[in-house]
Amino acid sequence: MCSLARFRNVCKSCIVKYLQSSKNCPQCGIKIHETQPLSGLKADNVMQDIVYKLVTNLFENEEKRKEEFCKSRGINVAKELNEADQNVPLTSVYDSPTGHHYSNDELVSLCLERDSLLLPLQNINGQPVHIPPLDRKFIRCSTRTRIAHVKKLLRKKLVLSQSLKLTISCSEASGLDDNWNLKQIWLQHWLDKDPPLILYYAISSS
């Protein structure tokens, strides 16, 4: 591989199409790889975020095209993700305070706050239900984390019964869909704000 190829920013669709007919770097002409030129491609998340910010509605349009692609082929992404979650135990840095967990994913700083505008909870007998606050409300996790994962974490840490309804909101967006990931939420509702990304959780009777 040429010495500068790994530092060049190019459009993914353009370079993939180019490498279908050539194994050489389009700028310097040096061969990238004899058999697998695509193996040298890496995502530049910082540059991607800049492009999303500069090009209006680009992210939303990409998500819409993904949905249309899945629908045209009868792929129910939400169902497949939910079924996969049922068989995967919830693990978290909460469960291992002294451990260190590393990931190649892009990470986001998250703050989980309880919605203070809600009325106190009551059980079916009219007695108040006490929900303790989170012992640690700041976490750092992958941008691929979905709202469903956040809810699962909250239910475990707050020991919530299934009879209680849990909703997540962010800024002006209330009742976020379970299939939304933190990347989508950040780009659409928190792009011009300082970290951490603040999510408000509300607990109510079903």
Results as ranks from 00 to 15, higher is better:
Ser3Ile: 15
Asn9Cys: 03
Ser13Ala: 15
Cys14Pro: 08
Ile15Asp: 12
Leu19Pro: 03
Gln20Val: 08
Lys23Ala: 13
Pro26Cys: 07
Ile30Asp: 09
Gln36Lys: 13
Gln36Asn: 10
Leu38Gln: 14
Asp44Asn: 02
Gln48Leu: 02
Leu54Tyr: 02
Leu54Ile: 00
Glu63Lys: 13
Glu67Ala: 05
Phe69Ala: 15
Ile75Tyr: 06
Val77Phe: 03
Ala78Thr: 01
Tyr94His: 06
Ser96Leu: 07
His100Asn: 04
Tyr102Asp: 09
Tyr102Ala: 13
Asn104Arg: 15
Asn104Pro: 08
Asp105Thr: 11
Ser109Glu: 15
Leu110Trp: 10
Glu113Leu: 15
Arg114Met: 15
Leu118Glu: 08
Gln122Arg: 14
Asn125Leu: 05
Gln127Pro: 02
His130Asn: 14
His130Arg: 12
Pro133Cys: 11
Arg136Pro: 04
Arg140Thr: 13
Arg140Ala: 12
Ser142Tyr: 14
Arg146Lys: 06
Arg146Glu: 04
Ile147Asn: 00
His149Met: 02
Val150Arg: 01
Val150Thr: 06
Lys152Ile: 01
Leu158Pro: 09
Val159Ser: 04
Ser163Gln: 08
Thr167Trp: 01
Cys170Val: 08
Asn181Thr: 06
Lys183Glu: 02
Ile198His: 14
Ile198Val: 11
Tyr201Glu: 03
Ala202Val: 01
